[in-house]
């Protein structure tokens, strides 16, 4: 099976969605966790949350995805939002250059609040709007490379690359944890202990439904 049962997993990875208002963060979340797209979704207020369990390298990973409002004023509440996050998708809209220009500002905020080892992917969403494109792919890819970010263009509407974007991020997180590239007390502690609740402690000992 490719989806683990809901209460057996080896790791919980908290991933946050950030970026300007209206770039499609909520629809990336619903496409990934429920395979749904809403043309009529309401603005996100505060934080919203969803999960999906996936298999990576024979391990069951529970991806806990946090979505937040893109409007400036809310950022006051978002330090709790970043706490414990091990991955981030920094989303812009390929048809709205302004949303791309603010990437640097979002990146700064992310590094101000989150674990320094956090895995970050720059995501150009709404790739279905190619005829209205104002952000060239190469430009965004170069920027991502320069900043040490992963990069992908997605369409939550067309269901293009959404799965790929999340699973690349989750795989990269897992590699970081597994390779012990980071020291104890940093990313491994964040993933393996309490921020996600007692039920997620000592997860390596838990049996997943799909483990051989």
């Amino acid at each position: 099976c490719s989806m683990g049962s809901d209460d057996s997993y080896n790791f919980v990875f908290k991933v946050v969605l950030i970026g300007e208002s209206g770039v499609g963060k909520s629809n990336l979340l619903s496409r990934f966790t429920k395979n749904e797209f809403a043309h009529d979704s309401r603005t996100t207020i505060g934080v919203e949350f969803s999960t999906r369990t996936v298999q990576i390298d024979n391990l069951t990973i529970k991806a806990q995805i946090w979505d937040t409002a893109g409007l400036e004023r809310y950022r006051a509440i978002t330090s709790a939002y970043y706490r414990g996050a091990v991955g981030a998708l920094l989303v812009y809209d390929i048809s709205k250059h302004l949303t791309y220009e603010s990437a640097e500002r979002w990146l700064k905020e992310l590094y101000d609040h989150a674990d320094p080892h956090i895995v970050v992917m720059l995501v150009g969403n709404k790739s279905d709007l190619d005829t209205l494109r104002t952000v060239p792919t190469d430009e965004a890819r170069d920027f991502a490379e320069k900043k040490g970010l992963m990069f992908m263009e997605t369409s939550a509407l067309g269901s293009t690359n959404v799965e790929a974007a999340f699973s690349e991020v989750l795989t990269a997180i897992h590699k970081k944890v597994a390779s012990r590239e980071v020291t104890r007390g940093s990313i491994s502690a964040v993933t393996l202990s309490s921020p996600l609740g007692p039920s997620s402690e000592a997860q390596e000992e838990r049996k997943g439904c799909c483990r051989s």
């Binding site: 207020i45 505060g46 934080v47 949350f49 509440i77 709790a80 007692p198 039920s199």
Partner: peptide, 10 residues
């Protein structure tokens, strides 16, 4: 279960 009020009551 480490649910914070801000997470839903905001």
């Amino acid at each position: 279960y480490e649910v914070e009020y801000l997470q839903f009551a905001f």
